[in-house]
Design a binder for these strands. Structure first.
Length: 900
DNA sequence: ATTGTCTGCCC
DNA sequence: ATTCTGC
DNA sequence: GCAGAATGGGCAGACAAT
């Protein structure tokens, strides 16, 4: 799925455990330093959770007064910069933090610059101003939502923040969106929020969009918070006077740092508020400060900023979303696409207060409401597709939002936010295909090309006519610095007639002597920053497979065959440095040769193959024209899309369970509902590109492991165990060796049952179902708690990683699939069998099914795991058991059979 | 100087 | 990366 | 089928702790 994988973070607050130890340490320190009165919340104080505990005797009111004093000081220090900000100096960003750092030092004693009334109010819940905001029915249908009635009250309210929209408004939006799974409600809520901002405070729109999308900048613009669960949990401890243990308990219960903050704030009997509410801009600017801070002491500074932000949150909901924003996981059911849709409709219906000449006037909602349903849908769809097309080609809200404010929903947008050199476009992706027969069936009647799917790193290479080169990763990070060797190669492979281009390929580690492909792990050993060409240790080859832009023209609308021809004819391949992906052009008739090709790919350390439609068929072009899916050189603006025709249930989804008998190949050609185009469609995962990997197939290797422990899940999985720690048996020692955590492949139903089965709060009694009474692992007297769970790691388990939240009484066997066996720095399973220092683990582990037929004595062994590793590492033509010293050029022929 | 923790980003 | 789920 | 959510192994790099 095109998910924002870049922002995937764990933030599981597990590190809170570490601070338990740190706590004692700090306690000692604090005791020693006694007498130094603590000052809450200034960025400079020591980040210890203990600090607040140290003064737990003080009442809430005393605490409030102390905090009030501190805010007063802060206010003084801020006096000037505050008013600056109020006078509308746009980025009054640096002021706040600086002034927090500056004062203290005794200087800021009682010297009120002016007797401003500083009201730090002690109060429960919301203020009157909040009530204005929270009363807005943001989820109303945008066509009836009465924008104008809210603008004046909001602006009146915002006058206290210099006209800046409050964070409370955005929080209100998130709260409503987060309270439903319905997409319509979520979208409407975002639409109306954006409309309010467009109309009442357009400057806050961009920051609001960043915050809504869990990001602070475009991916190719390097700006990272470098702040995660660890820092935030420490900050929460401090702000809400929680012990790490309490925080941990809350976190285990809710599975979300934001929810913990919400609960903690609710429990605080009194709510302390700063006189001025948080603003959208202010929050965004604080994030910017966090991102900018580097070097020694930066962690402390970041934590200080986080604490202040959390402390300044007016309500529980604000705390919740502040924290979720800090961990960049809002969980409101809207990220990229929903935001784009919402933006498109917001601008369709709303104009900024003083629209520039260029602004394409917005529609009056009431007239849109009067349109026919079809006409309205078409209007919405056009706008939506326009934004999606723009974003796919130029994925940066920093460009998109200002452009929208200037030109509105207009074709002009694609000129301003279209494909640009040195701005990565979103890559086209391949749909997963279970095996070759289903691939052949899907592409029946089409000419396609199969390409090796190298196990490396995807790269998008830009070069302008001045010869400047940029290289971007799959998730659009700029990695030009990582590959100076490739950059210097560009002049060599760029042909005579080429001035500018964007091409795409896979960077793979290779043996420069033999050209042999090396595993992904080798590639990932490369340095990433400030790499000098002469320091490069891991040689790479770029295997090019597509060309999206050439000499000023987009090629996205051209069929792959044509793009490929241009690529191969205008660029020069350089052996072992810059080559074309190995490919085989074929049709569904060529069953055998395709299968051989696939085998050859996997034999050469490739993950499998990518299969791509080469040409547009007339019928598809017609179909596409109807749906306006075709892009020309200048992408056309989609005008209309039909409701999806009903489709018949597809060929039986093979039950993953046993049943090894592979299905038969060619089924009848499926009647296709969607055109299969050979164009390059950025940001889409279409069936015109199919991904076939050996581990997707039913015939893939699997391993049978024993669940031995687990963690509390997060978010929607917070009531269940996830992930779950799995182990193999070591036959010689009798120990269970942990191999991997697993979280993929479980259904909700399974989770529920699993949680009931391993229940520390359940009936303590009852021997495990399958148990055969013997105390084989006996004597160790493992302390049982609840049902099938253990109080601590049993002696017979071999595992050194992070401590699970719960240990299981081993009693069942689960079958799992995986892509590869990896040499592990953390797991010790099979240690000594293939490496003396490292154990083995799995790449992309996922649960398949319970092996009801197996007892734990029949689970896979570490020797079995080791053998899997040898098999994949060694010469695939030869069973590794009798492996010999053979190694030559790796131009292997294959004879393995696949998919019988 | 070395080791450990945390984060971001590859897959 | 992979997978599941609600719409 | 899309969009979103939850989370795998493992690496380099940046800091913090020792």
């Amino acid at each position: 799925m095109p998910s924002p994988a870049k922002r995937r973070k764990k933030n599981d607050f597990k590190s809170a455990d570490q601070s338990v130890r740190g706590l004692d340490y700090f306690f000692a320190k604090q005791q020693a330093n006694k007498g130094t009165p603590s000052s809450h919340g200034t960025g400079e104080e020591k980040p210890t959770c203990a600090e607040r505990n140290e003064v737990t005797q003080e009442t809430d009111e005393e605490y409030a007064r102390r905090l009030q004093e501190q805010y007063d000081k802060e206010e003084q220090g801020l006096g000037i910069s505050r008013s600056e900000a109020e006078d509308g100096i746009p980025n009054g960003t640096t002021s706040r933090l600086k002034s927090v750092e500056v004062p203290k030092a005794g200087s800021s004693e009682r010297k009120p610059l002016e007797p401003t009334i500083r009201t730090l109010s002690l109060q429960h819940g919301t203020t009157a101003a909040d009530k204005v905001t929270f009363a807005i029915p943001l989820d109303e249908d945008p066509l009836t939502f009465d924008l104008s009635t809210y603008i004046s009250p909001l602006q009146a309210q915002w006058s206290s923040t210099g006209g800046n929209a409050t964070y409370a408004l955005l929080t209100h939006c998130f709260t409503i969106a987060g309270s439903t799974t319905g997409r319509i409600k979520t979208t409407n809520t975002l639409i109306n929020t954006f409309r309010l901002l467009i109309a009442a405070d357009p400057d806050s729109l961009l920051p609001a969009v960043w915050l809504s999308t869990n990001s602070i900048s475009a991916p190719h613009d390097p700006m990272e918070l470098n702040l995660g669960g660890s820092t935030i949990s420490k900050a929460l401890c401090k702000v809400y006077s929680l012990t790490p243990a309490t925080l941990r308990t809350l976190y285990n219960k809710y599975g979300d740092g934001g929810d913990v903050a919400f609960e903690a704030k609710k429990r605080a009997s009194l709510t302390l508020r700063k006189p001025k509410p948080l603003t959208v801009q202010g929050v965004y600017d604080d994030l910017g400060k966090i991102a900018k801070s580097t070097g020694k002491g930066s962690a402390e500074m970041k934590q200080g900023t986080v604490e202040r932000m959390i402390r300044d949150a007016g309500t529980g909901e604000e705390s919740r979303y502040l924290v979720r924003t800090l961990v960049q996981n809002l969980r409101i059911g809207a990220v990229k696409t929903t935001t784009l849709i919402a933006l498109s409709r917001a601008f369709l219906l709303t104009a900024p207060p003083h629209p520039p000449e260029s602004f394409t006037s917005a529609y009056d909602p009431t007239s849109v409401a009067r349109m026919s349903k079809d006409a309205r849908q078409e209007l919405f769809l056009r706008a939506e597709e326009l934004l999606k097309a723009s974003y796919a080609r130029h994925p940066s809200y920093a460009t998109l939002v200002p452009a929208l404010l200037e030109v509105g929903i207009s074709p002009e947008l694609l000129l301003r936010c279209g494909l640009s050199l040195h701005v990565p476009l979103r890559p086209m992706l391949g749909a997963i295909t279970r095996d070759l027969p289903s691939m052949l069936a899907q592409l029946a009647g089409r000419a396609f090309t199969a390409e090796w799917k190298y196990d490396g790193q995807r790269a998008q290479v830009h070069c302008d006519d001045a010869g400047t080169v940029s290289i971007f990763s799959r998730h659009l990070e700029n990695m030009t610095d990582k590959y100076p060797d490739l950059v210097s190669l560009v002049p060599q492979f760029r042909g005579e007639g080429v001035s500018s281009f964007i091409l795409e390929g896979e960077v793979v580690a290779v043996n420069p002597e033999t050209g042999q492909l090396l595993p992904f792990q080798t590639l990932s050993n490369r340095a990433r920053k400030d790499v000098k060409q002469e320091d490069v240790k891991v040689q790479v080859c770029l295997y090019a497979f597509d060309l999206m832009y050439l000499n000023g023209s987009e090629l996205l609308g051209r069929p792959l065959r044509e793009r490929r021809n241009i690529l191969k004819s205008l660029f020069n391949s350089i052996p072992r440095r810059f080559e074309w992906v190995r490919n085989l052009d074929a049709t569904s008739e060529d069953v055998e040769s395709v299968r051989e090709f696939f085998q050859e790919a996997t034999n050469n350390k490739c993950e499998g193959i990518m299969v791509k439609v080469l040409d547009n068929l007339d019928e598809d072009i017609k179909l596409a024209e109807q749906e306006d899916l075709i892009d020309g050189d200048v992408p056309s603006i989609p005008t209309r899309k039909k409701a999806k025709p009903a489709k018949g249930k597809e060929a039986s989804k093979p039950s993953k369970a046993a049943d090894e008998s592979a299905e038969n190949a060619s089924e009848a050609r499926p009647s296709r509902r969607k055109p299969l185009l050979a164009t390059y469609t950025p940001d889409k995962r279409l069936e015109s590109w199919l991904k076939v990997k050996k581990d997707y197939a039913q015939s893939a290797d699997t391993i049978d492991m024993i669940p031995i422990g687990a963690w509390h899940g997060q978010g929607r999985k917070s009531k269940w165990w996830s992930p779950i720690l799995l182990a193999v048996r070591n036959e010689s020692t009798g120990l269970l060796e942990a191999v991997t955590k697993c979280m993929s492949g479980f259904t909700d139903k399974f989770y529920k049952e699993n949680r009931a089965k391993y229940d520390p709060d359940g009936q303590a009694g009852g021997p495990p179902e399958n148990e055969e009474d013997d105390d084989s692992d006996d004597l160790e007297a493992v302390e049982r708690i609840g049902k099938n769970t253990l109080a601590s790691k049993p002696m017979y388990v071999e595992y050194n990683g992070p401590e699970p939240d719960i240990w299981f009484e081993p009693q069942e066997v689960w079958e799992c699939v995986f892509a590869d066996v990896t040499l592990s720095p953390t797991y010790t399973a099979a240690i000594g069998l293939v490496s003396d220092e490292r154990g083995l683990s799995l790449r992309f582990p996922r649960f398949l099914r319970v092996r009801e037929d197996k007892s734990i004595e029949e689970a896979s062994t570490s020797e079995f795991l080791a053998e899997l590793y040898r098999k994949q590492a060694g010469d695939p033509d030869r069973p590794s058991a009798e492996k010999m010293e053979v190694e030559e050029e790796a131009e292997l022929d294959d004879d393995g059979e696949l998919y019988g």
